[in-house]
């Protein structure tokens, strides 16, 4: 099976060298089985600090973030489907901050690239990036859920395997 799509980044979107990621129904399963070295991990130090600062409301706040990892890329996708560059830029800008707050810097960069695409109006370049964001968002959703389900800080091995599927 080869259902990968190359990420075609325009130089003036400020895009980094994003590698192709799988897309389609089997893509997430493929992504999950790999130990990525993409460097895109949740910031567990930040999460642990949030847990301390938020106390009992940590799980509630994290439920919002978990839901956002699925819903926000979907909103970005809908903006693209609606051919609405302004909405694409706005939704991507918003999601960029959310990603970076969790340490998901590479996802945040993809969102930043989509924001730039929205501003230039060259929506044809957005589709592969949106696919990446949806796959990575699903991954982040699961990792956040795992983290919240675990009591206390994650064991060291968890940190090594928690990498996002933003790679070929």
């Amino acid at each position: 099976m080869n259902n990968t799509q190359p990420a075609q980044n325009s130089p003036d979107t400020g895009a980094g060298p994003l590698r192709p990621v799988p897309s389609g129904p089997m893509a997430l399963q493929e992504c999950d089985t790999r130990n990525s070295d993409s460097g895109n991990t949740l910031d567990f130090a930040m999460l642990t600090e949030m847990k301390q600062e938020l106390g009992d409301s940590f799980s509630t706040v994290m439920q919002h973030f978990q839901a956002g990892m699925l819903a926000r890329p979907e909103k970005i996708s809908l903006a693209l489907q609606a051919n609405d560059p302004e909405l694409l830029a706005r939704e991507s800008h918003s999601f960029k901050s959310v990603c970076k707050q969790l340490g998901l810097t590479q996802m945040g960069q993809v969102a930043a690239n989509l924001e730039a695409i929205g501003r230039t109006g060259r929506l044809a370049e957005a589709e592969p990036l949106v696919g990446q964001l949806i796959a990575a968002g699903a991954w982040a959703h699961r990792e956040l859920k795992k983290y919240c389900a675990a009591s206390g800080p994650p064991p060291p091995f968890f940190q090594k395997t928690a990498s996002a599927p933003l790679r070929g």
Binding site: M50, E53, L54, S57, F58, T60, V61, H64, F65, G68, S94, S97, V98, Q101
Partner: peptide, 11 residues
């Protein structure tokens, strides 16, 4: 952003 509001207001 409702997520950032949720985080900040929780803190």
């Amino acid at each position: 952003d409702e997520l950032m509001r949720a985080l900040l207001s929780g803190v």
